[in-house]
Amino acid sequence: METWAVDLADVGAIYPWQGAEVIMVIVGVVLWLWWHVAQLRGENEEFKADLAKYGSPERIKKALDEHP
């Protein structure tokens, strides 16, 4: 939009990058799917690290006593 000196009855979409909607949707869907992949990988790594650091039977028993 370059001016508001218009009859609003003649105005529809006013967002930038009109005509690129499909591209924006593709970018959005890719970002959404990437988020799931990154999250699942991160969750796996977090569990592995936690088990390596805290996973001994003694530590687990201590955890159960501290946070039943």
């Binding site: 609003l8 105005v11 529809g12 979409a13 006013i14 967002y15 009109q18 909607e21 499909v22 924006m24 949707v25 959005g28």
Partner: peptide, 12 residues
């Protein structure tokens, strides 16, 4: 999602 009314639109 690529429809013009699924966005800032004075006609909808």
């Amino acid at each position: 999602p690529w429809s013009e009314v699924m966005a800032t639109n004075l006609g909808d």
